[in-house]
């Protein structure tokens, strides 16, 4: 198993006391595509970041089990964590406008990631960056490599981000809403690109999104999170058989072309779900 997580909790201190953001999440991930779906604040993003220990320092994390390929994240040293982060697991963030360093060229950011693990010369790193850019289906690699993030479109920026995280050939890719900031047409392209790369390289993928149908299309399994818990876990094909009222509610709120409704229902929330 690449990722094992049992009873993970994450809390943040506030002036009014500890605020529980994640309350006992358990999941496992092998060489497969796992989707995590939930609304803003459901804890999906920080649960994933906890695997790489990339939470802000004031976060309090507890778990019965939290392992990456058998390595205990809870007790791993910072050096061990760095070996995991760059080399074995990559993280793709939502908006390349913010997640790429604005004062470094795309090429040098990719080259930096490559050099950090492969220890080659500058020239080799620059060449590797061009090669990686062409792997994410960028045609004009030299222009893109020399460009600063603000000169790239959102789709281009996300390709650069993917190229950067693929540089060290990781075994796991965590994509945190990788397409939410992109146009609908570009979204599909980026997802197809990721699917292609992941299956070709035999990687595990954790795809975090708030778009339930999109994730179920794309992933082998889907975990639905609500208020810091996993309320339901489904195989991708079983979406229509979802049992939890939250998941069903989400599905019913979607407009469809085949069965048009005059009025979309409003999500009703049951306080019992929080228990």
């Amino acid at each position: 198993m690449l990722v094992e997580m049992q009873n993970l909790t994450i809390a943040f201190p506030t002036p009014q006391g500890m605020s529980q953001a994640v309350r006992g999440v358990s999941m496992t991930l092998g060489q497969e595509k796992l989707g995590i779906v939930g609304e803003s604040g459901s804890g999906k993003s920080i649960s994933a970041r906890a695997i790489l220990r990339l939470l802000p320092p004031q976060a309090v994390v507890t778990a019965d089990v939290l392992r990456f390929d058998g390595i205990d994240i809870k007790t791993a040293s910072e050096r061990q964590m760095r070996a995991i982060r760059g080399r074995r697991a990559g993280l793709i963030l939502q908006d390349p406008k913010y997640s790429l360093n604005p004062i470094m060229t795309a090429g040098s950011q990719i080259a930096e990631a490559w050099r950090n693990q492969k220890k080659g010369s500058r020239r080799e790193a620059a060449e590797a960056a061009l090669d990686l850019l062409s792997q994410v289906q960028i045609r004009d690699v030299r222009r893109v490599a020399a460009a600063y993030p603000h000169e790239l479109s959102g789709g281009m920026g996300q390709r650069v981000m993917i190229a950067m995280m693929l540089a060290p050939d990781p075994e796991l890719l965590i994509a945190d809403e990788p397409t939410s900031a992109l146009d609908a047409t570009v979204q599909a392209e980026i997802l197809r690109l990721m699917e292609d790369l992941v299956s070709r390289r035999g990687m595990g993928l954790m795809l975090i999104s708030h778009d339930l149908p999109l994730v179920s299309h794309f992933c082998d399994r889907v975990a639905v999170m609500y208020a810091g818990r996993v309320v339901e876990e489904l195989g991708a094909g079983e979406l229509l058989h979802a049992k939890h009222p939250y998941t069903r509610g989400l599905l019913e709120c979607l407009p469809t072309l085949s069965h048009p409704k005059l009025r979309l229902p409003v999500m009703a929330r049951d306080p019992a779900w929080l228990a």
Partner: peptide
């Protein structure tokens, strides 16, 4: 981008 940099190891 600081998180990105840390995620790069």
């Amino acid at each position: 981008y600081v998180i990105t940099a840390r995620a790069k190891g």
